[in-house]
């Protein structure tokens, strides 16, 4: 039953996404999709394992640099560029995750933040990242050597496909035997241990999956904007994804998509206010934490359940 409801919601989203370019310009939509995937990947960790990472920018931004470099300098095709970014993010997730999951709660967040800062300074200093300039003018090579993606509208549908693939991987993970164990760990970790689960291994796999998909999002974003820069790896990016997930609804399947949509729209349309966007974002954050702790989708679902329950 839940499955059907989620499926319907997903199909509705898909229909909306397919029709959207008629009303909104594609580059903006692609940006929303990239961040939505990023937030969904982040949510897999915080919403379903209960691990709050404050360093997810390292996977998002790191993958952006990798895909930018291999496409621009090594001349790799687009699809391999995105895959390379994903693979490197997964590898980075394996290493950082193995260190971070030894700690819990706030200490886990601090360790991920510290590691992400190390990655940031590496990106600032390394040669291939172009320092303050970043990697610019990343070419959009034809997809699979056939499909021309220089046209934004065409590329939008490719990005939509990438998003859907990533989203379905996350959805399946949540609703898999592995996902059941993750929920058990989130609900009561000592009990999961006492039932014989080596919880660190489960957390690590979840961390790697989350990192890899955050990488997919970052790599795709680099191709969309033809740019990989320090903005993508700095700690504000890690904060932004927390905000998106919180606004949309932590631990809900569709919350992060809504959250990403809201935050990106705000940044875009309030850009005229300059630095004030940050103040407004901060305010929204405070309001959400105080009044809508379940986020937009979480509150809607709770309201729906109350109504259904009488």
């Amino acid at each position: 039953m839940t499955w059907n409801r989620d499926m319907l919601a997903f199909l509705a989203f898909l229909a909306l996404a397919i029709a959207a370019p008629a009303a909104v310009y594609p580059v903006f939509l692609m940006k929303v999709l990239c961040f939505a995937l990023f937030a969904c990947a982040f949510n897999l960790l915080v919403g379903y394992v209960g691990l709050l990472s404050f360093g997810h920018a390292m996977f998002f931004g790191g993958a952006a640099y990798i895909s930018g470099h291999v496409v621009k300098v090594w001349g790799w095709p687009t699809e391999l560029g995105i895959l390379a970014g994903t693979a490197c993010a997964a590898l980075l997730g394996l290493v950082t995750g193995a260190i971070a999951i030894r700690r819990q709660g706030i200490y886990f967040a601090m360790v991920t933040l510290a590691l992400a800062q190390m990655v940031f300074f590496f990106c600032l200093q390394a040669n291939f990242t172009g320092g303050e300039d970043g990697i610019q003018a990343i070419p959009r090579r034809p997809l699979l050597g056939l499909l021309d993606i220089k046209n934004d509208l065409t590329f939008y549908y490719v990005v939509l496909a990438v998003f859907c693939a990533g989203f379905l991987v996350i959805y399946r993970t949540i609703h898999s035997p592995f996902g059941q164990v993750l929920k058990a760990i989130r609900e009561n970790e000592p009990r999961a241990v006492s039932l014989g689960y080596r919880v660190d291994q489960y957390k690590l796999l979840a961390f790697v999956l989350s990192a890899a998909l955050a990488g997919t999002a970052g790599a795709t974003k680099a191709i969309v904007f033809q740019l990989a820069s320090l903005t993508d790896v700095q700690w504000q990016m890690s904060g932004e994804v927390v905000l998106m997930t919180l606004v949309g609804g932590m631990g809900t399947v569709f919350g992060p998509i809504v959250g990403a949509g809201v935050i990106i729209t705000m940044q875009n349309y309030l850009a005229g206010f300059g630095e004030w966007v940050l103040v407004i974002q901060g305010l929204i954050f405070v309001v959400v934490v105080l009044a809508f702790r379940r986020g937009v989708v979480g509150e809607l679902m709770a309201w729906w359940r109350r109504r259904a329950g009488g």
Binding site: R172, T173, H175, S176, P177, F178, G179, Q180, V181, A184, A192, L195, G196, Y197, Q201, Y202, L205, L209
Partner: peptide, 22 residues
């Protein structure tokens, strides 16, 4: 109860498999 039983299936790391397999 199933959480305790499912370890015996050996699929607890299978994130690609449907939970219906449980």
């Amino acid at each position: 109860v199933r959480i305790a039983l499912q370890r015996t299936l050996g699929t607890s790391f299978h994130f690609w498999r449907s939970e219906r397999s449980l």
